[in-house]
Amino acid sequence: MLLDPLARLGRSGLDVLARFGRGHQLLLAMVLGVGEVLRRPRLLIAQVYNVGVLSMLIVGVSGLFVGMVLALQGHYVLARFGAAESLGLMVAASLVRELGPVVTALLVAGRAGSALTAEIGLMKATEQLAGLELMAVDPVRRILVPRLFGGVLAMPLLAAIFSAVGVLGGYFVGVGLLGVDAGAFWSQMQAAMDVREDVVNGVIKSLVFGVVVTWIALFQGYDCSPTSAGVSRATTRTVVHGALAVLGLDFVLTALMFGG
């Protein structure tokens, strides 16, 4: 029929809206289920281990290299203007404000988010979630809630580790390799960085990213079609949507925090 393409467009639009709605319902259900993690802290600890401890190596190593590269590149530009002493400030500001929260969120989306989606998706495909429901255990509360809060708790800590290791990496390259004065490196940084303005805003950013990345990962797993192809598609979507959401939200948050 002539109207078929229009109908297809409408159906896909409604599908997107419906998925959006299910996602928010799930988030609401998970937030309301916060009591579960207070009642069974063991479940939360296991998830902080999954998301946090297991991501520590990649986050630490990435932070070190990002800090070192920032120092090399920053020194190249700053030295042209005779401002090589501001290297510490440049490295710390870019790490604490931007790269720490954002790169950590991207790494966590790839490292832990995809694992979460695959885990939940397989639980759904092998009908373990349905099994839990048969035993009158709410799978959202028992399975999803600890994972969400584990991710939200781990993300700011990972971002802080990333930034701290990055600053140290920048220090090694800037002071050790490029010969920037160590005192100027720290004092320029300390004079311009502010706890509330920079550090706390960075933590707020990574908290938001923690919620978004974990939520997307859990929802994709929970909402996937229960086949091996469906799980694989959901895992891909977690990484793509997670990265897009983090980068888009980062612009909004930066505009709100530092734009005014």
């Binding site: 604490v96 802080a160 580790i161 930034s163 701290a164 600053v167 940084m189 300390q190 502010d194 550090v199």
Partner: peptide, 11 residues
């Protein structure tokens, strides 16, 4: 790390 950022980086 947070403590380091607060004390050493932003003094």
């Amino acid at each position: 790390a947070l403590f380091f950022l607060a004390m050493q980086v932003s003094n």
